[in-house]
Structure formats: C-alpha cells, structure tokens
Design a protein around this nucleic acid. Structure first.
Lengths: 346, 346
DNA sequence: TTGAAAGCGTTACCAC
DNA sequence: GTGGTAACGCTTTCAA
C-alpha cells in the first residue's frame, strides 16, 4: 500500500501509477492504451497491478485536449415539451444513437431546449463534442435560422427529419420518408372509399408533420379530387387538447376519417370517438403515424405508418464516427423508407 | 477580415481572439467569463467584436483540465432493452435531470448498458464527468455488486430506485415509495372485495418492482389473510409476451384482479382480457403502475399509481450540483411519495 | 487595468 | 523497451 493511495481530493493520474510501478508515465500510457508491443510483458504486469490497486481511470478532458479531438457527440433536441424524451420517436432515435456510440467508445451528450432558445444551448455555445446532432421544430423560418447556426459552428452535424438540402459538406441530413408515409395513408383511405377527411396536427411545427400532410394531400388529390380534406390544429399533443378539438369538430359534421399526425394523438382520437358513441371504423376511421408498439395496444388496433427511428439514430452515429475518422461525410442526405401498417381502425 | 479566420482545421482559441483584438489572453478570458469589472468597457467591446467575428467558443476540455472539475454529469442506465429510453419512467427521469443540469450550464452524458456488462460502461471506465447517476436492474446480488463498483469510483453518485442503504457519503439514493404504492393498490383491491389476485411482473428484476410486490402483499395480508396472491413472471414487457402469459393464466382459472408491475403491461393485459371476452372491471379488474398519461388513454381508464419521475430527475440534478459545490450531500437518501390514481378498470 | 508564466493530465516525438 | 520533453487551451497567481 503506497502513500499515493491516500492523497485526498486528488484524482489518480498516470504519474501516480508510474511512481507506484516504478516506471515512466509513457510506459503507463502505453499500457493503458493497449500498445502492448511497446512494453515488456513483465513491466506490463507490474503496471497493470498498480492501475488496479490505485483504481486509475484515464482523464478524458486531458486526452481530448492533447489530441484536439473529442470522442463524443452531442444532441440538441428542440421541443416545447420539457419532457422531451417521452416522445416515442425521439426516445428510440436517441437510444439507437447512444448504443452505436457506446459500441465505439464514444460518449453522448444530450440537451433539450425550447425552439426559440435554440442557439443558447450550452452544448452549442461551448466546444465539448467532436460532432453534433439536432432535431429542429418551430416555423420554417426559425428552423432555417437554426440550421444556419449549426452550419456556422464548423463541426460535423447531423440534422434529423428536415427536408432542407444540406447547406454545407459538414451538415448531413437524415430523415424518414414522411411524404411517402402520408401518401400511403392517403391511398389507403381512398381504397376505403372515404369522402371527407380531417388531418389533425399539433400547432407546433415539425417538418416531418408538414411532409406527412403534403404527401397525404397530393396522394388523395391525384386520385380523387372530390374528397374534401380539412386541417385542424391542436394546441398540444396532450390528451385534453386533442379531446377538446375532436369533440368540437365531431359535434358539427362528421368526417369519414381522422388522420392524426402522431400515434399518441390518434389514440386520443380513438378514445374520444368511442366516448361519443361512434364505432371505429364503421362510423369513423382513424389513423396514426410513427407507430411502434402503440398500434397493437389499442382496440381496434391502429392503422399507422411504421418508423425506423432506432435505426436512424444508429445510422447517424455511424455517419458521424466515419466523418470524424475520414474527414468527410460519405453521404450528405439519407432518407429511410417507412411502411404502412394496416390495423382495424380503417 | 483577419488572417486568423482562414486557418483551416484548427479551432479558434483565446490566443486567436487576443491577437485579433490586440490584447492579452487573460483579458479575453475575463471577458468570456463575464468578469466585466476587470476589463475596461472599450477593451471589452473590442474583444467581444473579435469573439463574434472569429466565432470563438470556449473549449470545455481545457477548462475542465485546468480547473480539475467537470461541469457535467453522466447517467448509466442498465436495461436489457436496447431502446432503454422508451420506458416512460426512464424518459421522464432523464428529461427532468437533463433540464435541471442545462439550467445551471451542466452537461449530461448518457449511456444504456446490459446489466451484466455494467462495469464496462465507458462512462464509468474513464473520468469525464464530475458526478454520476445510475439506474440498476438484475438480481439483487448483481445490483449490490454494481453499487459497490459505483461507490469505489470515488465520485459523487446518485442511484435511483434502490432500497439499499447509502454505502458511503458519496453515494445518495433517490427513489419513489414503491412499497407504499403497492400497498395503496392492495388496500384498494381489498375494498373492491377481490378474493384472488395475480401479480404480474417482468422476469428481469428491478428493485422497484420487488418493492411494489412486497408492499402489495403485506397490505393485503394485513387486512385479509384469505385473499390468494399468485405471482406470474413475463419474459419481457413486450405485448406478445404479456399476452401469451395472460392468455395461458386465464384459460385455467380466472383471478378477480391482475396487478401489473407497469402501465404498459397493464394495457396489454387489458386488451388481452377484452379479446378473451372478459369485461373490465366486471369480470376482472386490472391495475398498472407508474402511470403518466397512459391511464387516461385506455378504455376503461386504468387504475394505477402516479410517479414523480420527472421531479426525481430534477431533484437528483440539484443534489449533485449542490454536492459538487459544497463538498457533501445534504441528504443521502430521498424518498418521493406516490399517489393512487383510481380509474375505471377496478 | 493588463500581461506573463506556470500547470492541469495526457500523448507525439525523439533520445537513450 | 523505456523515458524526457513539449504542447493541447485554459485559468490562477503574481508582477507591472
């Protein structure tokens, strides 16, 4: 038991280990980094024993500083909901990203922020990550502004779910094909012979939701110009807000179908309809979007569009690590396909 | 436009700014850190202009190294589900933690890991955070081992949802009162005059689930010793697994109530029961746990126990920052109360 | 009010 | 095989 163990308040460093093992810091560094060919076996054993005894752990800040490269990625999620991780799309995306990064010994920093305050995110104002990811929301002009801010950071960035073109070689865009998803739902409802539809979306703008509506509308207009499509805005995706809007809408005249922008909203619509005594799908059809498991849990099961959120997160992680290693993104735009999941609600 | 702007591949440093502004690095540093009383107004303006022009951002690694203190917290979440953030309890907890840390300019590092591989988490093997949080799962012996590992790290740690006593002044425990939650459900079902109950839990051990069952059983045994309680294990919390187990159970003899360890499981039970033609609650009662919004979305609405997950995350953030500032935890154990939410399913 | 120097823990480079 | 030295970007300390 050497005296180095008892130094209070100070973290154990390479120097401490080197003293304990009676070698130089470089030798310890070589052992820590697995450069075993540079160290004699006997020396290595001694060093490893000292490391274990002193419970040495390498200091990431010092390594990053020395190497001018951080093995870490940050993600900024702009959302007006403080519980920004509860959205099933976001939680899967972040899980996939996190798991890939962990696999290659990268760290993930995460921060949620209100869209208006985007630029003030700590993660963006200080340099602490080798690369960044972002999810934007709010009006197109604000999203464009925030994208510009990201671009000027001069770091590799992956932006999710935006339909903008990549503005610079350091910004890559990863999204799912929401327009096609909307179109799939549109065609499906045409087959189901609807005459009038309400598209229900949250007041807060998300590019993905816009794309869904756009794809939905054009698919329907292409085939049947006599189908009426109305858009209704809901203040938030919460249960009460959705219920209030739907109740109000249904009390006037009933559409043949309600197309909700997300699964959570669709479930609220489903429940509201049944409370009002409507049978689904006989009296009214209902669809969701970004179904993961939710669609199976309802009765009737929900027609929705399946999202590859987890895979998108994973893939973004791969892109970023590859970019950091090779110096350039292999692709500046990636679009993941989505799939229609027909349930009993249509 | 100075030549400093065009240096490629190199990040802008205080030195670059100082040259551009014609002052020393210390002056720039003072401006960056808001020590305005140390800098003449005119000088400050000049420095601020240079900072904006060069898009200088402070380097966190360098600051951490110099100050030997990191303004960041890491959280390790042990879970066998790769999409570890989809659990509503976890996503709320992490959101609350993240938001509090953002408010005080701290960073949050996040990593999910299989319980068996806990000690290999990058976030634990390297020093990169000033403090840590952890959520454990798996058999008690494994959780105890992992807790020991955390303790020996010699850093401030908050562990969530464990009933162990704090093993050292540097380890604080934050949990909700799951035993009382279980007891509340037990008493409620006694009032509802059940005679037989099945407690449904995932095969993967979580301390919180154990506590729920313990509290539930003792509350019932205290009042009515003639009520039978059986425990059933489900391989995973997924829909198919829950459905298979419940179908099998109900095909033999039907309990008066099924008490599910989580809301997601409860919803699966609800749906399975209705598929089997059972009316809820007339034929069978169903309860969940950790209800957030889910309970309102089902038909009938779900009887459950409300969890303060978001607040627990926030509070842990406060504890950690206070610990880092003051040198000692004010409290080494905090228990949050839970509340019974009676729905239509009982 | 401003500046120069030392040092945080690590690694690349070059001697031995 | 091993070790000394310099440097990464920043802030504390002390001097001007």
């Amino acid at each position: 038991m050497s005296e180095a163990t008892s130094r209070p308040g100070r973290r154990v460093t390479l120097g401490d280990v080197s003293k304990a093992a009676g070698v130089s810091v470089m030798t310890v560094s070589n052992v820590v980094r697995g450069k075993t060919e540079l160290v004699k076996l006997e020396t290595r054993k001694r060093v490893e024993a000292a490391i274990a005894q002193l419970r040495y752990r390498p200091n990431i800040s010092a390594r990053s500083l020395r190497l001018s490269t951080e093995h870490s990625v940050g993600i900024v999620i702009s959302d007006s909901d403080p519980a920004f991780l509860t959205d099933p799309f976001i939680s899967r995306l972040v899980s996939g990203l996190s798991n890939h990064l962990s696999k290659v010994e990268y760290t993930l920093d995460i921060q949620g922020i209100a869209p208006e305050r985007f630029e003030s995110a700590t993660i963006l104002r200080k340099v602490g990550n080798g690369a960044l990811c972002a999810i934007l929301c709010g009006p197109t002009s604000l999203r464009r502004k925030n994208l510009g801010y990201l671009q000027r950071l001069g770091q590799p960035v992956v932006v999710f779910q935006e339909a903008f073109a990549s503005p610079s070689p350091d910004v890559a865009l990863v999204r799912q094909d929401d327009a096609s998803g909307g179109a799939l739902l549109g065609k499906h409802l045409v087959e189901r012979k609807v005459r009038s539809v309400v598209f229900l979306r949250p007041a807060l703008d998300w590019c993905a939701v816009e794309q869904r509506e756009k794809g939905f509308r054009s698919a329907i207009n292409e085939v049947a110009s006599n189908i009426s499509i109305a858009t209704m805005l809901v203040p938030s995706e919460g249960f009460d807000d959705v219920q209030a809007v739907v109740k109000d809408a249904l009390s006037r005249n009933r559409p043949d179908a309600i197309v909700a922008a997300t699964d959570m909203m669709a479930v609220a619509v489903l429940k509201t309809s049944e409370i009002l005594g409507l049978r689904v799908p006989a009296d009214i059809m209902i669809t969701g979007f970004n179904g993961f498991d939710v669609w199976r849990y309802t009765r009737p099961t929900l027609t929705t569009v399946l999202s590859p959120a987890y895979e998108m997160g994973q893939f973004a992680g791969e892109m970023l690590v590859q970019r950091l290693d090779s110096g350039a993104f292999a692709k500046r735009s990636v679009v993941f396909p989505v799939a229609l999941q027909v349930g009993e609600s249509t």
